[in-house]
Design a protein around this nucleic acid. Sequence first.
DNA 1: TTGTACGCGTTATCAG
DNA 2: CTGATAACGCGTACAA
Lengths: 335, 335
Amino acid sequence: MNKTFVSADDVAKRAGVSRSAVSRTFTPGASVSEETRQRVMQAAEALGYHVNQLARGLMRSESGIVCLVVSEMDTPYRARLVRALTHELQLAGKISMLINTDRSDGSVDTALRQTLHYRADASILLSGLPDKAITKLCLDSGQRIVLINRDDEIEGPFRINLDDGVAARVAVSAFLRAGCRRLAFANSAVGTPSLMAREQGFVAAARDFGLDVTVVRHGNTVYESGRTIGRTLFSGLEPPDAVFCVNDLMAFGLMDAARHEFGRRIPDDLCVVGFDDIEQSGWSSYALTTFTQPVDEIVRNSIAWLVNGDASSRSAFLHAPLIWRKTIRGTRRNG
Amino acid sequence: MNKTFVSADDVAKRAGVSRSAVSRTFTPGASVSEETRQRVMQAAEALGYHVNQLARGLMRSESGIVCLVVSEMDTPYRARLVRALTHELQLAGKISMLINTDRSDGSVDTALRQTLHYRADASILLSGLPDKAITKLCLDSGQRIVLINRDDEIEGPFRINLDDGVAARVAVSAFLRAGCRRLAFANSAVGTPSLMAREQGFVAAARDFGLDVTVVRHGNTVYESGRTIGRTLFSGLEPPDAVFCVNDLMAFGLMDAARHEFGRRIPDDLCVVGFDDIEQSGWSSYALTTFTQPVDEIVRNSIAWLVNGDASSRSAFLHAPLIWRKTIRGTRRNG
DNA sequence: TTGTACGCGTTATCAG
DNA sequence: CTGATAACGCGTACAA
């Protein structure tokens, strides 16, 4: 063996047929006689031949590659989304390229440029937001772009968003039914549109009931920020009896601070609701009542739009139902 | 715009030079005059040209693609590893293809075949184990293979393993120093070599001190299995006062069962040690004493072997130090 | 330094 | 149904 890939030519020679016959054998829906097919397959097997997707992608207009643009992909929700996306993409005959935008040097635009280098058929953005010029460039190159939970303003990509406003109202009424009156909202300082929508929806819904909301924004959307906010909130003069955390990770941090550093009992002294419904929310140390991300629907919508040419619908608006566990006291009603 | 990629030919025409000049402009270390370079760059910018890596990979022997073969990639440790790998690979000028082997149809072999389709320069396997024939096929095709925490037997790939045996001995002596005498080991039923190495090392080390170990194996290596094992262990006649869990997730499940269902206090009534040191281990609800996966070293070793042609060393054996938190009582000593 | 010509491995086209 | 030939977009000897 001389450490090199075997080509269709090699197979053709060995099988005693033309290169075209080999190509046809490996092209679904082409017309080959059963006899040549057998001969080709046999030779291919013996030589260890594999279709070169690079060359195939060069000929056809599509490469079969879909790029996933993500930062902080070890975050539970992101990780779950990436897992589901890659799985369904494979089922649809696509392959995923993972582009990590963790470092800070204009990463998203650089990443999107990478997707052009590899002639990706599409890009799915789970993090960040591309420059408008880059987006147009991708679109003009025939690429499809999906934005998950990012923004509503940018034109061209397919946008998937959740009804954060509705969720916020559901949270307020759940708190009120539990008898809570001192409401707080724990947000990160990131300022992503969907994060801000939850905050504003919560504040607005509370105001409808004549209640003010203490809003605290701090750091990234992670556990440690929730903990810091918890300390701020519970060492203040009027500590809240209900907190809506912008995601589950922050909720855990806040709960840990409240319980272990301030002796709060949940849900007796304090009600908490989160967002994402990551795996840890089901763990009995937290048992967090939280809004669930409809991951399957998100994935289905994304891929349906990628593979079908349905360029008509340009956005999807999905519902995030409340999962009742044990961090809101009282009786459960539908969320 | 007619929804298509622009080629080097287009750029050449617009810049009034030959196509070779364009190629040279985008090939690092080629000789082009500053003037033509400028003209080419300008034309490329105006047209929105991007080098086609597929075609480039067709010419050169290497595609720049590295495949990551993973299952259950939303597991915290796996997710962290994937994040770190993609990040460093990008820094090394490579791009990651993510292959999800979650479904059960002979997945790993199918996955590895996919890596051949796209002429990947290398494959990194975080899950599963390939058939020997497939491995040989990849190797013969000039591909490099890295096995992370998988097996020691298979020949050809670069293997990265942890000193699970040493860790097991450290765990035993930590338990003994804390005054524990009724030892247990919580394992999954998966039976991966590294998982079994931890178990056997623990049992052997305990025997050296004249102690028996209650070994329980159940389900997958996840939270719920740990919980189930916890129930089994603490509803038994001789419940343990120390448990080594084969990974952190199982430790959390076991701790939650012990605390919330059996009223055990940790570390007063029960000492626990885990493995992986995932983010959740630092959360104050768990504060788990655990062995840390040297992720950075794993990544560095993998990539060093992939990009440099150092085919001499065929394995790395890394140390997993113990991180002391609050699930083992008594004084800390070096792990 | 520049342009020409060829090859990389595949598919599409067309004549047989 | 089959085989020859022309693309696809790029790198690279080679000659100019």
